[in-house]
């Protein structure tokens, strides 16, 4: 899936992708005359094949959502390029853009904000079909189908209801259904099932796997839930402060994490047992943010293994064979 192991039919490829936001100035910036920036995404490469599910893990605020928005042309990159099915997306306009929109969809992270409060549920779900000019006669069938896919009852149960009249988990599934209703080739699913309990989640994830198998849906799953990623994604990327620090086949990556951050992540996964350990985590401190581009490894302040070299040199993403890549001097 990576440059090392390019899939036979790449659908989405990005190279050198960066996005920076202006950060509020601090007093010290005035003296050293810097224009502060937050490097939300900082030069990442990725490639997602047709029908491939890729997981994107990472700490809160590390740039996952921003990456997803870049891939869908919802925000313009500060540097780098993205191609969808072989076509660069930065210049898409008019009909080409609509065609792209029809094929690439987003499941929003925050379902409470993702639905127009003045639209009924029925209208929310039909909206993508209206926007992309799908013939009206087929709307109802498509909407019903999407509702069934996300394990929600048929449309008649939502008649005349507005988004605020649904529970969090119901909204989240409506958001997912809206993305599926266009039968896209690619979705960015930003925490698609975070509000669902396991019994429902299992059903939804099974459908997602099924859709991938039958319709060849490619997906980027952004999630903090390692079990989800393990369940649906063949490949996984781990991000830390705007950079990809590790990637590889999901099963291997979770079984034998190579980057200290990934290791901490895997160790912190809570288990559904009463007697779980309450020991302190191996990593210390809080997320620093991606202000400026510091020298050396970005994880070094919190890394339990950091050595002098980590402060000097930025570790590149190295290929370790068997599809695994890691950005750590010690791995």
């Amino acid at each position: 899936m990576t440059s090392a192991q390019t899939p036979t039919h790449p659908l989405v490829t990005a190279s050198g992708l960066s996005k920076r936001f202006a950060a509020p100035r601090r007093l010290s910036d005035l003296f050293n005359g810097q224009r502060p920036h937050i490097y939300a995404v900082d030069g990442i490469d990725l490639c997602i094949g047709k029908g491939e599910s890729v997981g994107l893990l990472g700490e809160s605020g590390c740039g996952k959502t921003t990456t997803g928005r870049l891939l869908l042309k919802l925000t313009e990159p500060s540097a780098g390029s993205i191609a969808f099915d072989g076509v660069a997306i930065d210049t898409l306009k008019g009909n080409d853009l609509t065609a792209f929109r029809k094929r690439a969809q987003l499941v929003f992270q925050n379902p409470f904000d993702a639905l127009n409060p003045r639209f009924t549920i029925e209208r929310v779900l039909a909206e993508p079909l209206v926007n992309t000019g799908v013939e009206r006669a087929s709307h109802r069938d498509k909407v019903e189908k999407a509702l069934a896919q996300v394990r929600l009852p048929p449309l008649s149960r939502f008649e005349g209801l507005f988004p605020h009249q649904l529970s969090g988990g119901q909204l989240q599934r409506i958001v997912l259904a809206r993305a599926l209703v266009l039968e896209p080739d690619f979705i960015v699913a930003d925490e698609p099932v975070s509000m669902l309990d396991v019994s429902v989640r299992a059903g939804v994830l099974n459908v997602m796997r099924e859709v991938r198998a039958t319709l060849g849906l490619a997906a980027l799953y952004i999630s903090h839930d390692l079990a989800l990623v393990r369940y649906v994604c063949s490949t996984t990327l781990v991000m830390y402060l705007g950079k990809i620090v590790e990637q590889g086949p999901t099963a291997d990556l979770l079984k034998m994490p190579l980057h200290p951050y990934t290791r901490a992540l895997v160790n912190a996964v809570p288990v559904p047992r009463v007697d779980q350990s309450h020991e302190a985590l191996p990593i210390i401190g809080n997320v620093s943010d991606a202000r400026g581009q510091p020298r050396g490894c970005r994880f070094r302040d919190r890394c339990p293994m950091a050595v002098a070299r980590c402060a000097e040199e930025e570790p590149p993403l190295r290929d370790l064979g068997q599809g695994r890549q890691v950005a750590c001097h010690l791995a």
Binding site: L152, V198, A202, N206, A227, L228, R230, Y231, P272
Partner: peptide, 21 residues
């Protein structure tokens, strides 16, 4: 509810939802 929970080890197996709504 307690059975449908996927843990990292067993996540590769089929997840079993409670069918119906």
């Amino acid at each position: 509810l307690t059975n449908a929970f996927p843990d990292l080890e067993s996540a590769a197996h089929e997840l079993v939802p409670i069918d119906g709504s």
